[in-house]
Design a protein around this nucleic acid. Structure first.
Lengths: 112, 112
DNA sequence: GTTGACACCTAGATAAACTATGTGTAGGTT
DNA sequence: AACCTACACATAGTTTATCTAGGTGTCAAC
């Protein structure tokens, strides 16, 4: 019953998955699923537009390739993309630290 | 340059802040700011509608009070609200673990 | 010859968060 | 007296990300 709702952190995930080399969309979905222990099972309608957007703003470049009759579009980080990965990782760290900080002062008693 | 973009985790924060007793909207904003080390500085237009929504779905109840001429609406967790807090905390944990899991396999080299 | 995995695409719906603006009280400053 | 700031609540409307729901086409297996 899990999977959706990425909440603004999709770009970070895509950049992270592409950080160790060029990949095409379909395999990016598979890797995100595998690396997250099935938590992120993203529909194609989510990742393709996101990849296009990241390319448009210059964080990725793409290239068409034909692998035994099937066409694939492989994406690769640009230099700016790699910079953005580091930056967004920092932002994520701050964000999750802040959430943790609010939660740690919460009261967990079942009655109050 | 910081502050916005809660990305679907606002409910968790509101429930957490209310976990140790009833509070009104304005002071919830202050507490979120303080507990998060200034990270979450939320506009009123974000939190008031969110409180109304949480009340509508039965996670909060509200009560009007007059404190020296000023009217206040104080919110309190319902039993279901306390349950939802635990549940959403669990979801947050899974979510942030999954992000961390994807990130830890990323390559951080500046050239590749 | 149909099904399912592979592989891409996009228009439109949904929903959350924010912007901008409004109301009104209290208290302090000019 | 007029003004400003902090307190305190409210909502209409914009924005934007993600998802839904469709579509195209290849290849291999049954």
């Amino acid at each position: 019953m899990r999977g959706q709702a990425l909440k603004g952190h999709l770009d970070l995930l895509l950049l992270a998955v592409l950080s160790d080399g060029a990949k095409h969309g379909y395999v990016i979905i598979d890797e995100l699923k595998a690396r997250s222990d099935e938590q992120f099972d993203l529909p194609e309608g989510t990742i393709y537009p996101a990849l296009h957007r990241l390319e448009k703003v210059g964080l990725l470049t793409s290239e068409w390739a034909a692998v035994n009759g099937r066409r694939r579009r492989t994406y690769r980080l640009t230099k700016r993309g790699r910079g953005a990965l580091g930056e967004q990782r920092r932002v994520w760290q701050e964000f999750s630290d802040a959430i943790a900080s609010v939660l740690k002062e919460a009261t967990w008693a079942t009655s109050l």
